[in-house]
């Protein structure tokens, strides 16, 4: 595991609603009133139904590594918006924006957007011009 991962911040704010109208309800599982921003490294990009999941590793303020899961739209809908199975690769540094799980013991969130180290911003609700 590389040492570049770091825990960025978890801030409370009134977040924009990001409805995930597929498979299951967002509000039943995620606290949409809290914004969460985490910086880490991609562990695995699970590109499939019923929701794609970005697994990534962050280091907490005690230096412990944590594995987080960011759920987003199913791969079918993401594909038509320009995302691919290899859009995110293991080891890629990422900044992940979203809303945390209502179960605070679980390192899970619903994804709002992910920012890559080259500055590319990927938002599951916005279409990109060419496949990423």
């Amino acid at each position: 595991m590389k040492k570049s991962v770091m825990f960025l911040a978890a801030s409370i704010a009134v977040g924009a609603i990001t409805p995930v109208v597929a498979h299951h309800s967002v509000v039943a599982y995620f606290d949409m009133k809290q914004d969460l921003v985490l910086k880490g490294e991609v562990d695995e990009w699970v590109f499939r139904a019923p929701h794609a999941v970005l697994k990534f590793v962050v280091k907490d303020d005690k230096g412990q590594l944590q594995l987080w899961r960011a759920e987003t739209l199913p791969s079918n809908l993401l594909f038509r918006k320009g995302w691919r199975f290899n859009t995110l690769k293991k080891g890629d540094p990422v900044t992940v924006y979203g809303h945390p799980s209502l179960d605070t013991h679980r390192h899970a969130m619903v994804l709002s957007k992910v920012v890559l180290s080259d500055g590319r911003e990927l938002n599951p609700m916005k279409k990109v011009d060419k496949p990423q």
Binding site: H23, H24, A28, Y29, F30, V46, R48, A49, P50, H51, V53, L67, R69, E71, P74, N76, S101, D103, H105, R106, H107, A108, V110
Partner: peptide, 20 residues
């Protein structure tokens, strides 16, 4: 293809013990 059960274990709605 949309094979829902294939990715069900990865979802936040499954028991935590199966994941974290």
């Amino acid at each position: 293809e949309f094979v829902c059960v294939e990715g069900l274990d990865e979802q936040v709605n499954v028991p935590k013990s199966a994941q974290d």
